[in-house]
Design a binder for these strands. Sequence first.
DNA 1: GGAACGTGAAAAATCGTTTAATCAGCGTAA
DNA 2: TTACGCTGATTAAACGATTTTTCACGTTCC
Lengths: 333, 333
Amino acid sequence: MQPRLKEIAKALGVSTATVSNALSGKGRVSEETRKLVIEKIREVGYRPGGPGRALRTGRSGVLGLVLPDISNPLFPALAQAIETAAERAGQGILIADSHGDPGAQSEALRRMVQRGADGIIIVPCRGTQVSDLSLPAVVIDSAVTPGNCVCSDHRQGGQVAVEYLQQLGHRTLVLLGQSRRSLVQSDRVAGMQDALGPGLRAETFWLEDGTPDLAKLVRRGATAIVATSDLHALTALTRLQGAGFSVPGDVSVLGFDDLSFSARITPGLTTLAQNMPDIATAAVEHILLQLENAPLPAARLVPMELVVRGSTGPAPAERPTRETRPQQGDVTT
Amino acid sequence: MQPRLKEIAKALGVSTATVSNALSGKGRVSEETRKLVIEKIREVGYRPGGPGRALRTGRSGVLGLVLPDISNPLFPALAQAIETAAERAGQGILIADSHGDPGAQSEALRRMVQRGADGIIIVPCRGTQVSDLSLPAVVIDSAVTPGNCVCSDHRQGGQVAVEYLQQLGHRTLVLLGQSRRSLVQSDRVAGMQDALGPGLRAETFWLEDGTPDLAKLVRRGATAIVATSDLHALTALTRLQGAGFSVPGDVSVLGFDDLSFSARITPGLTTLAQNMPDIATAAVEHILLQLENAPLPAARLVPMELVVRGSTGPAPAERPTRETRPQQGDVTT
DNA sequence: GGAACGTGAAAAATCGTTTAATCAGCGTAA
DNA sequence: TTACGCTGATTAAACGATTTTTCACGTTCC
C-alpha cells in the first residue's frame, strides 16, 4: 500500500494541510518543518495520489490523444513525440482509436472528458469537424482545418518535393495520392501542382480510383513518381524494381512521412518528413496555454523537411521509349 | 460544464445516494424513481465523473501500457489491439515510453501508479525484470520471462517458418537476427534451429555483429533468407532485388510480425504474424482477473501464424553457381 | 395496541488532496 | 494594559462519487 498524506502527517505529528503546504510551498510553513516533511516523504517515497488531487483541483495531469487509426504506420512517430512532449510537461497520455468513424470519435471524446482529461489532442477522422467540447483541444490535421490547429505544412512539402525533382532535371512526373477526401493528401498534391511550371508536366492519380500502370507510364517518359505517403512510394518502388527498372537510374521515387522502413530499403527512400517533435511540442503547449486562459498563438504551421536518400537521382539522359528490360507479371496472388 | 450527480438529484428532488443507487442497481430504489432517474440522466447526458469515482472506489478504469519504444513499427498493431481490448472491457489506456532505459521504465511505472492506473501491461526493456509493483501487472515479452506473462510463441513461429521452407524444397537457409540480447529474437532463432534436420542447413548471422553479404551467400547456394523481423526481411529483399536477383525465383525471403508495409511491397512479404487481438485480450483479461483476486491462468502462449505472400516460393531447381545476372553496386550513399 | 418487519429514501461517512478560514501564541506599539 | 499584527500551524470545507447507516412510514402479526 502506498503511503498517504495522512500517514506522513501522523508520523511527523503535524496536520495533512501542513504537509501539503510544505510540498507545494503555498501556505505558511517554517523552514524547519518543511525540511522535516521533505525528508520524510523522500524516506517513504510518497507521491500525491492522482485521483484525490484531480478531484480537488480539477486537473488530472492527463491529456487525451484521439486518433483515427492507431495502426497507421505514421502513428508511432507521432505518438512518441507527443508522449515525450507531454511527459516533459508533466502530463500523461490517454489514447483512443476512433477507427475512422465519426460516431466512435465523438464517443471517444466523451470518454476522455469522463476520465478527467485536462485537454485533448485530436487527429480527426476525414471530413469531421471537432465540435465544441467542454475541454481545451488542439487539432492535428491540415492547414485548411478551422480552429485550434497545429500541423505540418503539407502544401509546402509538396512544393519542395516537386522543386527538388525539377532541379534534378525531371520534366515528367507521376503524382500518386490515395484519397481525395484526405485533407492532408490533397494539400500535398496541391502543393506539388503549385510548383509545376512551364516545362514541368505531371499526371495525378488517386489510388481510390484504381491502380495506374506505373511501368507503362515510365516507358512513356515519366522519370519520377511522387507518392503522398512512403507506403505508396514503397509499393511503387518495389513494383518498378520487380519489373526490372532501376531506381533511381530509370526512375526516381519520392514519398512522404519518413516511415520506419524508408531508411532501411535499398535504395533508401527519399521523403518529406514531418517534424514530429515540433508538432508535438506545439500541440501540448497549446493545450497548456488554453488551460491557463493565456492568449493563444495563431494556428501553427510546421515546415516539412526533405530527407534525401538513394531513391531519387538525376533524370535519365536518354528519353526514347525503352522496351529492353523484361517485364514480369505481378508475382503476388 | 458537465452535469454532476448533485444537479441530477436536485432536479429530481431526491438525494445523490438515490441517483447513484438507481444507476448502479445496488441499494433499494423503487422501480418508479429508477425510471425517472434513468430518463433524467439520459436527458442531460450525465456520466459519472472519473476522479470522484476513482477516489471512492479505488478504481480508475485505466490501464497503463509501458513500452520500450513507441516508434517501433510493431507497436501500432499492439497498441491498437490493446486499446480495443481495453475499451471493450471499459478500460482506458495510458501510454508511456521507457526509451529502452530501465531507469525510465521504473519511473514510468511509478507515474502509472501515481496516476491511479488499475493495472499495468508492460513490454519490458531488454534484460529488465519487472520487480514487484503494487499493482496487477502482465508482461508481454518472451516465454522465458518469469512471472505473469502473455506472449506469442516465438519459438514455435521459428519452427513453422523453417518447416514451411523445407516443404518448399529449400535446403540451405540464411538466418538473420538483430540482437542476441533480445529474448524475442533469440527465441525465434532457437525455434528455427529446432526445425533444422538432416539435409537442411542454416547459417545464422546477427546484424549487431555486422551485415553479411547476402548476394554472396545466395550465389554460394543459399535459397532462402529468414529474418527475425519484417524490417530486416525488407532490407534483404530490396537489396537482393536491387542486385538483380529474382524474389522468389532465385531466393525466398521470409520475415516476422507482418508489419504495415509487408503486404504492400512487390512481391508481398511472407511472414509470421503475431495474433495481436488474442494477446491483447489475454493481457487485459489477466489484469482484470488479478483485480478481482480470481485464480490466474498459467502464462499464456499464443501461436504465431504463417501468412504466405509472394516472397517465398519453391527452391530453384538448378543449383549451379549463377553469374548470369548483373550485379550492381549499392546505390545508396 | 404495541412490537416486529419491510420498504424506500435520506443522511452521513468516506476516499486523498488542496485551500480558505481560523486560531493560539508572541512580540510590539499605543 | 490592551489592541494589533505577524507567524506557524490546525481545522474545516470542498471536490464527486459510492456505500454504510439511519430514519420515516406502512403493514402485519401477535
